[in-house]
Design a protein around this nucleic acid. Sequence first.
DNA 1: CGCTGTGAAAGAGTTCACAGCG
DNA 2: CGCTGTGAACTCTTTCACAGCG
Lengths: 267, 267
Amino acid sequence: MATGRTHRPATRSRGIPEATVARLPLYLRALTALSERSVPTVSSEELAAAAGVNSAKLRKDFSYLGSYGTRGVGYDVEYLVYQISRELGLTQDWPVVIVGIGNLGAALAGYGGFASRGFRVAALIDADPAMTGKPVAGIPVQHSDDLEKIINEDGVSIGVIATPAGVAQQVCDRLVAAGVTSILNFAPTVLSVPDGVDVRKVDLSIELQILAFHEQRKAGEETSAEEGPDAGAEPEAAAVAPPAPRGATGSTGRKGPDGDVPAVMPA
Amino acid sequence: MATGRTHRPATRSRGIPEATVARLPLYLRALTALSERSVPTVSSEELAAAAGVNSAKLRKDFSYLGSYGTRGVGYDVEYLVYQISRELGLTQDWPVVIVGIGNLGAALAGYGGFASRGFRVAALIDADPAMTGKPVAGIPVQHSDDLEKIINEDGVSIGVIATPAGVAQQVCDRLVAAGVTSILNFAPTVLSVPDGVDVRKVDLSIELQILAFHEQRKAGEETSAEEGPDAGAEPEAAAVAPPAPRGATGSTGRKGPDGDVPAVMPA
DNA sequence: CGCTGTGAAAGAGTTCACAGCG
DNA sequence: CGCTGTGAACTCTTTCACAGCG
């Protein structure tokens, strides 16, 4: 994601594949729940079920971390919680700033899973002077003029962008210039960042569109539940749209409030 | 994700790989922006840059949709917008319900990218009677007792869960029972659903943890930018934690307000 | 000539299946 | 005997590189 050079092509960081890293938080959550119930050990089968993956994958994932299990028995819950936490870097806590305290920013600020799990909301930042000083989720909002100062004083290296799309890139640039090297972007824009900076994005409309794709397919399928053995030549999806409105060059115009905007549908 | 059987192992739906489907919304957004600026055509190179991917990938992706480009020229923006929209199923609009109108639910309800891009917020649902009737983002909240009725009357097939983790599964079950077949889950839990139901999840703390992993690695690397050729035996990450607190069985207790909870750190 | 479309090669990630440890 | 750890097979994804159309 992100134009510049995001998901570091670098790759298998220290040997742990990216796909595995992405699942560690899942395992950690499941393990934490077990830990709370004072369950001492789990088998790969049980833990996999709790995390929603299959056991072979889980064992393979854990094998990248080391041999933390006991054959014939399973994994020691507490021990694994610790190992995964350490691997993820959660044994230290990370100060995080949230920029853009609108509805979403406020929701994020109040998100419980934040405080715990090794993260601490170091500051809430918004460009609206009317917000400055106003406490959100118990934390006073600071003005974006002080962004650099805040980042520096708290040694923040992770920033969350919850601003409108139109200003996301400039906020990003300032965060990066101030020393932030990891960004979680909620704005529906592609951010470009220099090498060495990681960006992850969370995008509601993308997720919905992916769901819509599958949803549409379900509706069109109905029959032939089991995919055909050969998958024929070129089965047109459902009978929804007209042949092909070629050359309807520019005219949909319609500028949205922000640097983003949709306007799909020809019909 | 999701225990049951989520990301359908089924796979290459109609021939379009999942990875490609996940990028179509990205292309669509970039194309829409171009369309608004009345740009008539784009090359794979330009569009790829705007979408934050490389051009070879983009061309390969488009090749699954058909041959919509013109050699020596590029792609017709309007035409591609239409083709991708159709492929994603956005030429029809999908009624969506949002369950759980807390901070996050409210933020989602007000999200602009919703109304556009083929989705329509059909209803906001919350279990708190005090919320019932209260308008959020211009839409009156309805009580969850009426969930089934709402789903049925509006023919909703996509549901968004923004409730606390503790009730997410039961909300999910009710949605599914009422006929919803696609779920976007914001609650930090693994949902299990029957076959045929798609679940996608958006999870703040998972994203942060992934960032923390890479962040930690950056800090630990510093030296040896280029990974060592052999990756030694068992290089302890940073010098942060003690050797290994084996068998510290149950005691971290500390029950959170919800069915979820963290509490990482041994030390 | 420029840019698409695509085979073929390379690389990641997943699944299988079983050796072998406790 | 049960369950982990893992080589090997397989599948999916990305990248390369270039033929060939407009």
